[in-house]
Design a protein around this nucleic acid. Structure first.
Length: 821
RNA sequence: GCCGAAGUGGCGGAAUUGGUAGACGCGCUGGACUCAAAAUCCAGUCUGGCUUAAACCAGGUGCCGGUUCGAGUCCGGCCUUCGGUACCA
């Protein structure tokens, strides 16, 4: 009889739902385990393969932990605000709220069909006022502490999405993270969250969390902490002093010019009249360049002289001021000292414009008079550096830095690459920013008791350059809370990454009305024990959430430093070598597989495909293998109906109770218990499934075993397979005659360590490193016995007779290596 | 350019601290069942050599070299692919 997956799956789904087996009692914190998967972005009505790959295995992990007796909390929800819904609305006229709610309903049905053990009482969606109210409240707390502020700055503008983007949301090729359109630079007044205040802590905290090294490294690089010195130069002919940031004060004697970012205001002031025309022309010319062109490291360097000079504080030398676009206005002071001898960029620039190159660091094993063919950027001996000559340059860094500080012309400084998080968006489908702009009072926060600022349903969300909310008079026009005069609401909405920065806290009680979330529960249940999601969030969501968590801790709402104790990235499933996308037409629809094989088979196949962290290219070639495995499993249990009732097994047996076949089965069952446990524990589902397949193969000899051992084996098999194929597992368990559901009464069998021991081992005999023979010995035979047996072996004799014995290495129970000449 | 990960049969992929390379599955080949097919079951399946066959021998984990009794695993130098990053001073 074929496994009737439709019937079985819906039966157990109804059972679980009816018994509320998914429900977690959060008041019990003993053996608590918060297993979280990144919530769903409901931009389409269907769950695609990527969702299944993310949620299925994670749910299996959660179920496995539940069977082990953990009090598992596994919630799910919807990251419901965002651009795709709004773009869809622009195209079709369907309101984002309507399409989103519809999508969520469809997705929810699919998630249930998958057999996820989600706590539906904790379900949340970010687009409801009772959720986003707390985004606004969070904003106000940040605002109070000066961590939410508005400034005019050059920002990334996506002309297609018609909104600004945070820097994290611009791809490395300059494209928009959502739509790939090349972003433009614009000077706009925008809202920022001051994540940079937490830069150091975000860096240090990485040491305390169990995350993939690669992800931590990405965050480290993104934060880009750089320790250096700010050196003050005076501008010749002006009272003005300028400061440059350098990590190499040891090369200060090698400065032959300085470079300002062209957009620095001071450029206008210090440029000599006869250079003005060229300078203006240059500034104009770079305006037409895109950010990518401008910052491309492969682009040839350009720049012009201003005709002005600064004085080098270390030696009083006069060096020219140039402007060049390779100096970024937004990093450090926007001005750098140029040391062409020891900096690649400066070298290239100096070569091109004929500026002097001075060697001040001597490369070991080279001569002072050797010409520099390229910039030497490593440590060496200081030369041409006055009283510092002969000093090792890394020591020179400290020494000069100290001396500059003593002279009052320098100080130690730390710079970060990290910028503040730009959170305002000129779009409709998001959280309104709780600020009003009063003609008299200026920026006024909406009082907390007036939250939420509700997102109006009726707006013109067509993109015409401005924020859609701005055209909704009813929304925008308000009286100032301070003075009562006419005011306008801020018409921007928040980046949806604000929503996802704290949702894991809200899950604990999404109906909580006394605050953002229940602090008691949060203190007991966070940090999240295991968090699973895509690596593409490494420097976006995963950085933002850490920042917000630390802020919430600082205002006393949580007591932990980090939101996610352990992080696992699932790999990406591609299709024909490319990311699945509608535009490429390579999207694989999981539904057809669910319909022909059922969700257990599909889930298990996704796990069996390969290492979870690796993902891979989709192919359905092997799914029949998993299906066969399921069919054989079902057939086996069907042939053993009520075995557990009729022939109950003991908890444990002695190996002496068995004949050889029984011993072998008993051992294999226990080896598999051990194997499956460690594999699932480490998210190595592929080898976990393989171990169960091996066991099933071994169980071919089950009929030759005594009846109670059959029960012993089958019960354990059912329990092991149930996290991976939950419906099948329950069904098998039930077929054996067990009355209580596995997930209703979690159960986990211990490994009989005695069964893991073996009587006999095969010892491989190598001669000069080549395998020449194998001998079977009793386990832990004495070295003498092993040696005697080895040398009695015909093949060994063949290779050793008449040869000189040089060496013997015996690795007990494994290998016997003989070296002969 | 820099940083990181990975290269193993026809395919997806296994291989504790260096210790029998190719688990498990797909595919393929042969057989059983069948009037026949599908499904299922059984056997075989890294490559080459020699064999009716088995046994045996040689080679083999991207390439070149090294360490070691022994290397997919460690070290040095390359090549390729995929992620991240892009003049951050």
């Amino acid at each position: 009889m074929k496994y009737p997956f439709q019937e079985v799956e819906s039966k157990w789904q109804k059972f679980w739902e009816g018994k509320k087996i998914y429900k977690t009692d959060l008041s019990k914190t003993d053996k608590k385990l918060y297993c979280l998967v990144m919530f769903i972005y409901p931009s389409a009505a269907k769950m695609h393969i990527g969702h299944w790959y993310n949620y299925g295995p994670t749910d299996s992990y959660a179920r496995f932990k539940k069977l082990q007796g953990f009090n598992v909390f596994e919630p799910i929800g919807y990251d419901a605000f965002g651009l795709p819904a709004e773009n869809y609305a622009i195209k079709t006229g369907v309101h984002p709220q309507d399409s989103t709610l519809k999508n969520i309903a469809d997705i929810k049905e699919m998630v249930k069909r998958m057999g996820g053990m989600y706590d539906w009482d904790s379900e949340l969606m970010t687009c409801t006022p009772d959720y986003y109210k707390w985004n606004q409240w969070l904003f106000l707390q940040l605002y109070k502490k000066g961590l939410a502020y508005r400034k005019n700055a050059p920002v990334n503008w996506c002309p297609s999405c018609q909104t600004v983007l945070a820097r994290e949301q611009v791809l490395s090729d300059g494209g928009c993270e959502r739509c790939n359109t090349t972003v433009e630079q614009k000077n706009l007044t925008q809202w920022f969250f001051k994540i940079t205040d937490y830069a150091d802590e975000l860096l240090d905290g990485l040491n305390k969390i169990d995350w993939p090294e690669k992800t931590k490294l990405m965050q480290t690089n993104w934060i880009g902490k750089s320790i250096g010195t700010e050196v003050e130069f005076s501008v010749e002919g002006y009272d003005e002093k300028i400061r440059v940031f350098t990590t190499r004060p040891d090369t200060l004697f090698g400065v032959t010019y300085v470079v300002f970012a062209p957009e620095k205001e001071i450029v206008q002031k210090i440029t000599k009249p006869e250079f003005k025309a060229d300078v203006d022309k240059y500034i104009e010319s770079i305006k037409s360049l895109t950010e990518i062109d401008r910052t491309s490291a492969t682009k040839e360097k350009t720049g012009v002289s201003t005709g002005a000079y600064v004085i080098n504080p270390i030696n009083g030398e006069r060096v020219p001021i140039w402007i060049a676009d390779y100096v970024l206005a937004t990093y450090g002071t926007g001005m750098v000292m140029a040391v062409p001898g020891h900096d690649e960029r400066d070298f290239e620039f100096a070569k091109k414009f004929g500026l002097p190159i001075r060697k001040v660091i001597l490369q070991p094993n080279t001569k002072v008079e050797d010409e520099l063919k390229e910039a030497y950027t490593e440590i060496g001996t200081m030369i041409n550096s006055g009283k510092y000559n002969g000093l090792r340059s890394d020591l020179g860094i400290e020494k000069i830095s100290k001396d500059l500080e003593a002279e009052g012309v320098g100080r130690n400084t730390i710079n970060y690459r990290l910028r503040d998080w730009l959170i305002s968006r000129q779009r409709y489908w998001g959280t309104p920013i709780p600020i009003i702009h009063c003609q008299r009072c200026g920026e006024v926060p909406v009082p907390e008791d007036q939250l939420p600022v509700v997102l109006p349903y009726n707006v013109n969300f067509k993109p015409d350059g401005g924020s859609p909310l701005a055209s909704n008079e009813e929304f925008v026009n308000v009286k100032c809370h301070m003075c009562g005069s006419e005011a306008r609401r801020d018409a921007d909405t928040m980046d949806t990454f604000v929503d996802s920065s704290w949702y894991y806290l809200r899950y604990l009680n999404p109906k909580f009305t006394d605050g953002m979330f229940d602090t008691n529960l949060a203190n007991n249940w966070t940090p999240v024990d295991i968090y699973v999601g895509g690596a593409e969030h490494a420097v976006m969501h995963l950085l933002y959430a850490r920042f917000i968590h630390k802020f919430l801790r600082d205002i006393g709402l949580v007591n932990s430093d980090e939101p996610f104790a352990k992080l696992v990235h699932q790999g990406t499933i591609t299709s024909q070598g490319a990311k699945m996308s509608k535009s490429k037409g390579n999207v694989v629809d999981p539904n057809s597989f669910i319909e022909s094989y059922g969700s257990d088979v599909f889930r298990m196949y996704l796990m069996f495909m390969g290492p979870y962290e690796l993902g891979g290219d989709w192919s359905d070639k092997g799914i029949v293998g998993v299906d066969r495995f399921v069919q054989r499993t079902y057939a086996l249990f069907n042939a053993h109906k009520n075995d557990a009732k009729e022939n109950p097994s003991k908890e444990k047996y002695g190996l002496n109770d068995f004949n050889e076949v029984e011993k072998s089965v008993y051992r294999k069952v226990n080896q598999t218990l051990e194997k499956v446990r460690t594999e699932i524990e480490h998210f190595r589902f592929n080898t976990g499934v393989a171990a169960l397949m091996e066991l099933l193969n071994e169980l071919k000899s089950l009929e030759e075993c005594r009846k109670d051992l059959q029960t012993y084996a089958l019960e354990r098999f059912a329990v092991m397979i149930s996290p991976l194929a939950p419906h099948l597992g329950e069904e098998c368990w039930n077929l054996l005659g067990n009355e209580k559901s596995l997930f209703e009464n979690p159960l986990c069998f211990d490994v009989d360590q005695n069964a893991l021991s073996v009587d006999n081992v095969t010892i491989v005999v190598q001669i000069n490193g080549k395998v020449r023979s194998r001998i079977d010995m009793q386990v832990n035979s004495s070295d003498v016995d092993v040696k005697r047996t080895v040398f009695a072996d015909e093949k060994v004799k063949l290779y050793t007779d008449g040869k000189q014995l040089l060496k013997e290495i015996y690795v007990p129970n494994k290998i016997y290596n003989i070296v002969v000449k």
